[in-house]
């Protein structure tokens, strides 16, 4: 039986993990390769690396990091953050990334999704969509770290992305991100029902039960979180044992 996936997300700047990572026994918490290897050992199903570097050296350092991660890691990983061209994607895939996620570039020019899917196959093209709720318009798609409303409806955009060839949707609720009040179950469920490709839920995870809810009530295929894993608030193994007790298929 296909299992639900648990995905820690690592934010990367200039080849190092950002956000304080408090991990006992980890000599260098800023070393993404060591952190990734540790998550893999603990039972993470996949990893996401989100690069927030905004310098000219961005591409070079990211490709070098991807190569080092691929050398060490024996589970799949996705790379995202400011990726906008076929050349960017090719360099990351050739150096060992399993999937590449695109966000703003796909919104600016949706045909990019088709070009990438045709060239590399849908299986490695993830469209990351950041959504935020407001009373007037419902769930809308945002860019620029959640500050700019594109005016696009979240469900419609995710459906368009999948129709254009995205192999997976990484849906982040900016309304829930950082709250630890749980995932956005309504929009995650709506997107999951609207598209035929897998949906990764992100934003808001604070407890074991939040993951149960997003799998059982919102039909997410995977749950992604960052700080609760980095700060050791939730262990991957304990989370998976909890999910199994709740009758959710997981790899243990």
């Amino acid at each position: 039986m296909l299992t639900k996936r648990i995905i820690p997300c690592l934010d990367i700047k200039d080849g190092r993990t950002v956000k304080g990572v408090r991990f006992e026994g980890l000599r260098d918490a800023g070393d993404p390769v060591a952190l990734a290897a540790r998550y893999a050992r603990e039972g993470a199903d996949e990893l996401v690396f989100l690069d927030i570097t905004a310098t000219n050296q961005k591409r070079t350092t990211l490709v070098a990091l991807v190569r080092e991660v691929a050398r060490e890691l024996d589970i799949p990983f996705t790379v995202g953050g400011g990726i906008g061209t076929v050349q960017d994607v090719e360099a990351l895939l050739l150096n060992g990334a399993d999937k590449v996620s695109i966000n703003s570039a796909a919104l600016a020019r949706p045909e990019l999704i088709e070009e990438l899917a045709r060239r590399f196959g849908s299986q490695c093209i993830v469209v990351a969509a950041d959504t935020r709720y407001n009373e007037a318009d419902g769930w809308q798609i945002y860019t620029r770290a959640g500050t700019h409303n594109t005016g696009r409806d979240a469900v419609q955009w995710c459906r368009e992305a999948a129709d254009r060839g995205a192999g997976e949707i990484l849906l982040t609720s900016m309304s829930n991100d950082g709250t630890k009040d749980g995932f956005a179950l309504d929009i995650t469920g709506a997107v999951s029902r609207a598209v035929s490709v897998p949906v990764v839920a992100s934003g808001g995870a604070g407890s074991l039960q939040d993951f149960t809810n997003v799998f059982q009530q919102a039909q997410a295929d995977a749950g992604l979180a960052a700080s609760i894993f980095h700060f050791g608030e939730i262990g991957i193994r304990a989370l998976k044992e909890h999910l199994r007790q709740d009758g959710i298929p997981v790899r243990l």
Binding site: L2, V197, V199
Partner: peptide, 12 residues
Amino acid sequence: AGYKVPHMGWNN
């Protein structure tokens, strides 16, 4: 229903 394509993830 309930089976996304691609089949993506860990299966036994």
